[in-house]
């Protein structure tokens, strides 16, 4: 039962991923990305990571995709010439490189993990309580550093996206 659900979700995630790459219109890419993120959030729930599933929906689907859509709408989806961008050699090289990578990873996974290894932890291992306790005790320093990083990122975003005004005479002197 869980396996069937996982297969459906994996299919949706793959379709979403392909949609991001293959769409002509960036708006469709952003919506495919949303589909991908949502199905991965449900896979997190299946993997006993309830807290991360909720955070995935809130941060990725709620914030990041909306930000992407805002920017696509603001700067206009189809600006720039997308037509003369087909470079067959680059395409072939990309596909060969990535196929090599993928085959290597799959080979390593099959070699290393015995097939059908399943969960070792209790079902509530990834609850909000457990992850919160870990974040505020063992991983307090990385947590606080992440908050500092978010603050710096917010300032950076505001400064970068601000409309540039040259300094006036009395400001430079």
């Amino acid at each position: 039962m869980t396996l069937i659900l996982f297969a459906i979700l994996a299919f949706i995630a793959l379709v979403g991923g392909l949609g991001v790459v293959l769409s002509r219109n960036p708006v469709y890419s952003a919506l495919s990305l949303l589909m991908n993120f949502a199905s991965i959030a449900i896979i997190y729930f299946l993997l006993n990571a309830q807290f991360l599933g909720v955070v995935q929906v809130a941060v990725y689907a709620g914030a990041i995709v909306v930000l992407f859509l805002f920017v696509v709408m603001l700067i206009g989806g189809n600006i720039g010439s997308l037509r003369h961008s087909s470079r067959p050699l680059a395409r072939v090289v990309a596909v060969v490189l990535v196929a090599t990578f993928l085959l290597t990873v799959i080979w390593i996974v099959i070699q290393t993990l015995p097939l059908s290894t399943t969960s070792a932890g209790p079902p509530e291992a990834g609850s909000v309580q457990a992850v919160g306790a870990a974040l505020y005790t063992d991983y307090l320093v990385p947590f606080e550093l992440a908050s500092l990083l978010l603050l710096v990122g917010m300032l950076g975003g505001v400064v970068l996206a601000r409309r540039y005004k040259p300094l006036t005479e009395d400001e430079t002197s």
């Binding site: 869980t2 396996l3 996982f6 994996a10 995630a13 793959l14 991923g17 991908n36 896979i43 299946l46 993997l47 993928l102 990873v105 799959i106 996974v109 099959i110 993990l113 097939l115 059908s116 290894t117 399943t118 969960s119």
Partner: peptide
């Protein structure tokens, strides 16, 4: 329960 290698392979494909 989902076998871990399926999830790893899905992640690699993505």
């Amino acid at each position: 329960m989902i076998p871990t290698d399926y999830v790893l392979i899905l992640a690699a494909v993505l």
